[in-house]
Design a protein around this nucleic acid. Structure first.
Lengths: 123, 123
DNA sequence: TTGCTCCTCACGTCACGTGAGGTGGC
DNA sequence: TTGCTCCTCACGTCACGTGAGGTGGC
């Protein structure tokens, strides 16, 4: 039996996930093949979507359906999103950025430069 | 950096720009219509591409031809690139980030959050 | 058994690049 | 005049979503 305290289950099979997201199951499989999402494969060889997978798919859907961005673009944007999420806490820190953080921030910004096609060299 | 003996002209008409970039003139016109680039229209009503326009087009071409990203994606990435370029000097500053800079950085990061589809609210 | 899952193949649509065709100003 | 520019229309290609069809395990 499942823990009744949680209102929604923490794991979804593909059809349930697709319903929840209002997406086609085939689309979810395609996205996985493209490497955009990686649902675990426990329970036989079935895909099991976690909460994080669902959130990621929701974001992808917003890019694709909402903004008309293709999968190559989504891929790049997801990479950027990861870097931005790493930077966030370094800057939000209430004591202001410590010197060590500034270094890390600088490194992450360099990574962003690369991801948006701006080389580090200025030439 | 600016007015040294410039080896190349500073302005290009569309066919020269297209040759230089190895792109089709029609493509440059399409990109302008999409708002991806805005060459000035001096000299009659002809497009005159500046050095900045050329650089921007080179970047766009890398996204499109190199990475297979569509124009909607390019548009988003260019917006992100602008923000990242604003952040750069704030972090590169040799004396480390001053407190005022941290505020600005935080603001820019918030903007990045928006551009990569991550809402500011965490819910 | 039923209803799910897995997979591959194929079709329709749309975005995009490119070319044709006809215009006008330097 | 020539060789450029401007524009619009149209075609070919490719990415993508979606469906069909056939399989197998819980």
């Amino acid at each position: 039996m499942r823990d009744m305290a949680s209102k929604t289950p923490e794991l979804w099979l593909i059809s349930t996930a697709a319903d929840l997201l209002e997406m086609h199951p085939q689309t979810l499989r395609k996205y996985e093949r493209r490497g955009l999402v990686r649902p675990p494969r426990t329970l036989g060889s079935m895909r099991v979507y976690t909460r994080d997978d669902i959130e990621r798919l929701r974001l992808i859907k917003a890019f694709v359906d909402g903004a008309g961005i293709n999968l190559a673009g989504v891929e790049r944007l997801l990479s950027i999103a990861e870097v931005v999420q790493r930077i966030r806490p370094l800057v939000t820190d209430p004591r202001g950025a410590a010197r060590a953080d500034v270094r890390r921030i600088r490194g992450e910004i360099d990574e962003l430069f690369r991801l948006v096609g701006l080389e580090d060299t200025e030439d």
